[in-house]
Computed example of a mutant assay.
Amino acid sequence: MRLLFACLGLLLVLSAPQARAEPLAKQYFGAKTEASKQPPAPYGSYSRGCVAGAVQLPETGPTWQAMRLSRNRNWGHPEVIDYVQNLSAFAATLPGWQGLYVGDISQPRGGPMLSGHRSHQIGLDVDIWMLPAKRLDLSRQARESLSSISLRKAKGAYVNANWSPQHHALLRAAAKDPRVARIFVFPGAKVQMCKDEKGDRRWLRKIRPWYGHHYHFHVRLKCPRGARGCENQDRPPRGDGCADAQKWVNDILNPPPPKPRDPNAPPPKKRRDYVLSDLPRQCASVLRSQ
């Protein structure tokens, strides 16, 4: 009996490293270069999921260009591809804009990325550059080297001289689409829009202040109707959100004192990378699909 327990203990010790060595989900999804041959469907949440049957945004269209093509992140649910095309057509009507430069959407099958975003996993997020698209004939090399412009001043408390009425109009059009759940942008931009908007203010509710997001704004669509495996984010709080954005700005200009740290408190847990078993069960079939 003692020998049996000893053997079992040895087996557990030997198997533990194998469990810890389970490949990370981002390695599986980052290796896929094409979408799955399945009906379009987002599974899971924006930061823990995948997308079946994704569609690739064409690298160049009549009113857009996809940027950073080497990342192969110009894939998304058909709803987000249609959204980008519609918004870019509106952008082309703005003075000084020929359309949009489009940043990351998702990988071909969504899922965690090898680098960068925690979200963008179910094909319903897209980054839109703040740089006005003045030409739509950029080469692949130019799309790797060209940079967007920053619109922030004072660490995001204010907009800078690059901000324009066209940015306001573009964000307003982006938010008014009923498919949009929320749009992330730096706090100073939200406060500026709150000051400048003289008409219908309901769309401002969807514009949410967030860290960064001064070189691009991040659009997040709602789960499409009938997508049962998709998890919506909670709706934004009621109201236009302008007071909340002003608080962000106030905290940037006059940071509150740091809270005293409990010396006996355990160290914060490091956010771990997901393995495949952390994702919705459908994601395994998304990976297996040809």
Rank of each mutant, 00 (worst) to 15 (best):
S119F: 13
H117Y: 15
G96N: 12
H77V: 02
A92E: 03
T93F: 04
R109Y: 03
S115F: 11
R73Y: 10
S88Q: 09
W75F: 09
V102M: 07
Y101M: 07
L131Y: 02
R109G: 00
Q85T: 09
N86F: 01
P95E: 14
L136C: 09
D127N: 10
N86T: 14
R118S: 15
K134Q: 15
G96Q: 14
S70W: 14
V126F: 06
I105V: 13
V84C: 06
E79N: 06
S88G: 11
R73S: 13
P78A: 01
W75G: 01
E79F: 02
L69M: 13
A89H: 05
V126T: 12
P132Q: 07
Q107W: 06
I122H: 00
D137P: 03
S115G: 10
V80M: 12
N72G: 08
R73A: 14
G99N: 03
M113E: 11
L69Y: 09
N74H: 12
M113V: 08
S106W: 06
H117L: 15
M130E: 04
L131Q: 06
P95H: 11
N86E: 15
H117E: 15
Q107C: 03
D137Y: 04
Q121M: 12
P78W: 02
Y83L: 10
S106P: 08
V80C: 03
S106M: 08
G116I: 12
Q98C: 11
G123M: 02
N72Y: 08
A89P: 01
L131H: 02
G103Y: 05
T93R: 11
Q85P: 03
L69F: 10
D125E: 03
W97F: 13
Q98V: 07
R109K: 11
D104S: 15
P112H: 07
D127H: 09
L124K: 02
A133D: 01
L100E: 00
P95F: 12
